[in-house]
Design a protein around this nucleic acid. Structure first.
Lengths: 182, 182
DNA sequence: TGTAGCATGTAAGCCGTTACATGATTGA
DNA sequence: TCAATCATGTAACGGCTTACATGCTACA
């Protein structure tokens, strides 16, 4: 039975599992944050640096990762790698944990809900603002998608990136329609 | 300048603002939770009862709501109404607060991201499970949408409900496509 | 030489949850 | 009379953020 860790913990462990395929020396906390910014943030969250370090030492305490330390001066740089136990735990978690329905925290939709309290021009500006934000986000995600390419190795991250792009496109579509309906 | 409250606080204040149109005696914490379950949970969160009571007394402390108390036996039932100051604060918040890009916590997408660690049959079951959950959710939201009807009074909640339905339909569509791509 | 990026961590505190405790009212 | 629903609240704690503190490395 895998230790009872948060989804975020397992998500980070997943990043380490994925990294294992390509590299051997493991990832630092800093690098983990970069990976999270590139993938996790679109479908989960990208935890703060301080949170990354907390999670990674928790994983270490449970034996799910091991570390390679590099000393330079009075500083220690730690590279984390998933262990056999970690792979096992992750796999069990993937198969057995309860999967909650997605949670959406949508500040734009929340404000539209209270549209009665705003001027028509403000509502229009609100939706326009969201459309612009979507353009930026889509650009970021498309860059990730392009980087992933079409090889088998990254098939699943690519699928999830396509999923995200589809979502952003769908949002753009409905928000344009809603704007017309104002 | 409105007091610095969480988005959830303002969301609850928004429910009270909306209620004011139709009723006069205000809402209890319990009723507030029911409203949140009907609307907020689809685009934000439906806070736990304990959180509702915490927020509502915070709003009271800031003078954004007032209370009408009904005593029966040794229990007190409190009805909360938005005050003029509350309306003002809410309106300022709506116009001036920074609007963050939506946050999606998507446990299904997160697992698909690590698809490499699963058997093909498990991945299929994962997506199938999400499709089923979407059917249930859509049913709930459709019931809400139907209840809202098409009168001007509830125009914005209706728009946001339509937005939600569009989102669930879009998810269903892309997940079916992804299933084929497996 | 100074600043941007790499790198690690602690402390304080907010938001929100679950568990627990209590009591009134309605209707089968 | 007993269960469901209405109704309120406290305590403990988890997860996560921001602010703060520190130091190395490369390069303009």
């Amino acid at each position: 039975m895998p230790p009872d860790l948060s989804t975020t913990s397992f998500a980070l462990l997943g990043l380490l599992a994925f990294d294992e395929v390509t590299s051997t020396e493991g990832l630092t906390g800093y690098e983990l944050k970069q990976r999270a910014d590139r993938t996790l943030r679109f479908y989960w969250v990208s935890p703060a640096m301080s949170q990354i370090y907390t999670e990674v030492s928790r994983l270490h305490r449970h034996g799910l990762v091991d570390t390679v330390e590099q000393k330079s001066g009075r500083r220690t740089t730690r590279h984390y790698r998933i262990t056999a136990e970690g792979r096992q735990s992750l796999s069990v978690w993937m198969k057995t944990s309860e999967i909650e329905f997605p949670v959406l925290k949508h500040p734009f939709a929340l404000r539209l809900l209270m549209g009665r309290l705003m001027e028509p021009a403000d509502i229009e500006a609100l939706l326009e603002g969201y459309l612009n934000a979507l353009v930026d986000r889509r650009k970021d995600l498309l860059a990730v998608r392009t980087m992933l390419g079409d090889d088998e190795e990254r098939k699943f991250p690519a699928m999830v990136a396509d999923w995200g792009l589809h979502y952003y496109d769908s949002e753009t579509e409905i928000v344009k329609e809603l704007k017309k309906r104002l």
